[in-house]
């Protein structure tokens, strides 16, 4: 396979890869995911009458959008070979904090949003910093963060009624469309970051082979902190959109979001082991997962069974990732 590729790659020295080749290359990478999506969507389309409406499609997007914003950050971290299990708890902290900023301190929405984003970024950066300094595996550091930040959110929220926010804020969560627009904007920016910028493109190198990146002069530790920071920032943004949509904030929100985000990223085809992936794939993965959730509920399958289904799909997706790596 590799040999064949290399021989075709030199058979034509000096030729340039046209835009069509790039398109073809990208399509070859995601056609399996697209096929899976078509199959799953088709299955529910046939099985459930109400699933067929356009409103259903819209609500799939709408429900997926908050998680998808958070998952864009997860994509960056996973591509760089990292892992952040604490983003669900960062989500909770920022949600509660933004609620306090407005409901208790009376800060104007734009300021509350700005501070909330800063907070998300700071908590993410803290994870990254602890990890690169102590060299404790990301899994453990961010597992600690998951519990600790959750506790922080509970302390901040205790005894407070955080609801009824100004319209200038709740508009961020209006219907399905505003969160969707924010999601697409975030996805496009994340995509540009990963493919067009120095820091973003280095995530692939660090995730692919950290030692080569280090020997090539890439500041690996500093870059990693930035990736965790962006993951935290986007978790914060997702929380802000959700608080705006619900018009209340509570520390229980965001539970297991990190796992759903990782699931969506991996289902989409980004490697859990770093070095490969993209944000378009994450959106596809999120769409697949949300289609299954919505489809199953339309068929009258309860949430507990949906969880089992998602769990099974995560294992299949990771197995597929492992299998693809071994056959390369």
């Amino acid at each position: 396979m590799t040999q064949l590729d290399s021989s075709t790659a030199v058979s034509n020295p000096g030729s340039e890869a046209g835009p069509f080749d790039v398109l073809k290359h990208n399509f070859l990478q995601i056609w399996q995911v697209l096929a899976a999506l078509a199959l799953i969507y088709g299955f529910f389309f046939i099985m459930s009458e109400p699933f067929r409406s356009f409103d259903t499609l819209l609500s799939i997007f709408g429900q997926a959008s908050i998680l998808a914003i958070l998952a864009c950050g997860t994509t960056i971290v996973l591509i760089s070979g990292g892992l952040d299990l604490s983003v669900g708890s960062i989500f909770a902290v920022v949600g509660v904090a933004v609620g306090i900023f407005m409901a208790e301190w009376g800060l104007p929405p734009f300021m509350a949003v700005g501070l909330g984003l800063l907070m998300g970024a700071a908590l993410g950066a803290l994870n990254g910093t602890i990890q690169v300094i102590t060299k404790v595996p990301a899994f453990i550091v961010t597992l600690g963060g998951l519990t600790a930040y959750k506790g922080l959110a509970e302390i901040l929220a205790s005894g407070r009624d955080l609801s009824r926010f100004p319209d200038a804020f709740t508009f961020l969560g209006t219907g399905n469309t505003t969160p969707m627009i924010i999601m697409f904007a975030v996805a496009i920016l994340t995509g540009l970051f990963l493919t067009k910028t120095r820091l973003g493109s280095r995530a692939f190198a660090i995730g692919g082979n950290e030692e080569v990146a280090r020997l090539s002069g890439v500041p690996v530790a500093k870059s990693r902190i930035y990736y965790y920071m962006l993951g935290g920032l986007l978790a914060g943004l997702a929380a802000i959109v959700e608080v705006a949509k619900l018009n209340f904030a509570m520390p229980a929100r965001g539970q297991s979001y990190e796992l759903y985000a990782i699931a969506a990223v991996v289902i989409g085809g980004t490697s859990l082991f770093g070095g490969r992936g993209g944000v378009g794939k994450t959106l596809l993965g999120m769409f697949i997962m949300q289609t299954i959730i919505v489809g199953l509920s339309y068929m009258g399958v309860g949430t507990s069974y949906q969880r089992i289904a998602i769990g099974a799909i995560i294992i299949v997706a990771v197995y597929w990732d492992v299998w693809r790596r071994s056959t390369r």
């Binding site: 120095r198 493109s201 280095r202 692939f204 190198a205 995730g207 692919g208 082979n209 030692e211 080569v212 990146a213 020997l215 090539s216 002069g217 890439v218 070095g275 490969r276």
Partner: peptide
Amino acid sequence: LALVNEISITKNVFLGRE
């Protein structure tokens, strides 16, 4: 430890000095 498998030739050549 010369090249990163997962990234393009261009990015490999300029890695660290983009």
